[in-house]
Amino acid sequence: MKKTIGLLLFPDFQIIDMAVVAVFETANSLPGGPYYELTVLSELGGPVRSSSGVAVLTERFGAPAFDTIMVAGSSEATPPMPPFTAFLREASQASRRTASICAGAFQLAEAGLIDGRRVTTHWAMARELQRLYPKARVEEDRIYIEDERIWSSAGMTACIDLSLALVEADYGVELARAVARKMVVYHRRTGGQSQFSALLELEPKSDRIQNALSYAKRNLRKALSVDELADAATLSRRQFTRAFRLETGQSPAKAVETLRVEAARTMIEEGNHAIDVVAREVGFDDPERMRRAFIRAYGMPPQAIKRAARAGAESAT
């Protein structure tokens, strides 16, 4: 039996959030499908204009019961919309689960659906969400969060990660992987993964420096000397060192440490690995060196991050 999904739109919604439609459409095209029946809804029905100017045709709010209610986001926090809030509250009560994308979390909050719950949104709006709705437990550096029947995601392309996670919860990991492959999603991110990327933050401007950083990320267990990275960039040591600092503002050693810390944090938050195992896997010489790097990056040791991740997982069960 197909699962029904109601996607709620409002004026000036973010058009990229319609990517969730592609996830469920792709699932329906795979063997055993169709798996989902999706309805796009709005208060008045008809075309709803996105912030980009592109309009999407919708049906008017009606019967509230769906398997899943999803709320689209926007590029900024949207003021309360009483009719929208009332339908969302009713639909959430009548449906099995409710999910928000990006600033859609503000709509869930206005409907009273995230009091006492873990929730995320786009990193740029997270503190505002926490300020306006202090009863929510906002985690600003997550791709998506599941707290019982309430799901929420970060902004932009995180809606794809959220939708793939919903597919996995409904029909298993193999179908979710098949959808990701067909959509040419290079890496299906887990909910606990950071919204930030060390490679993105470094912002290399040339392909050669990007190649060196990508090589480093694939080979973190190795020593990764400057000479090795220079070879990956097909530059001399002197040319590489000068170009690297000009493009990233960091030394190669500092950038590699940043990549190692990011990889270590992901392992700690998503698995049950011992700290010394994590240190070895990401290329730190010993746990103490990793501890010092974590304090420089996050202001806390890896053990504290591990405890926080465990506490979050326990509160979600």
Rank of each mutant, 00 (worst) to 15 (best):
H187I: 03
K135Q: 13
H187N: 11
D147R: 03
A216Q: 12
R149M: 00
E314M: 15
K205C: 01
A255C: 01
L246N: 10
R218E: 15
V256K: 09
V282K: 04
I145F: 02
G112I: 07
Y36D: 03
M267A: 13
I275M: 13
M300Q: 15
G46C: 09
N211L: 12
I275H: 05
A263M: 05
A198H: 06
V179W: 11
D207H: 13
H187R: 10
C102W: 00
P79C: 05
A22W: 05
P82F: 02
M18V: 03
G271W: 14
Y36Q: 09
A232C: 10
G73T: 04
G192R: 15
A232G: 10
P134E: 10
A243K: 15
G155D: 04
V54F: 10
A136M: 08
D115A: 13
R310V: 13
R149N: 04
R137N: 09
I160S: 01
R265C: 09
M267W: 11
R221G: 12
A178K: 02
E128D: 15
A111Y: 01
A212W: 09
S251C: 00
E174K: 03
R118P: 03
T248Q: 06
A297N: 10
G46T: 12
G249C: 02
Q250I: 00
P204N: 06
S75N: 14
L44A: 11
L220K: 10
Q130S: 10
P82S: 09
A178Q: 08
G33F: 05
G45E: 12
Q239G: 15
R292P: 03
E314R: 15
P302H: 08
S214I: 07
T121P: 05
L235K: 10
E201L: 06
Y35H: 12
A63E: 14
R127Y: 13
L220T: 11
G45R: 04
M183H: 03
L9V: 02
D170Q: 14
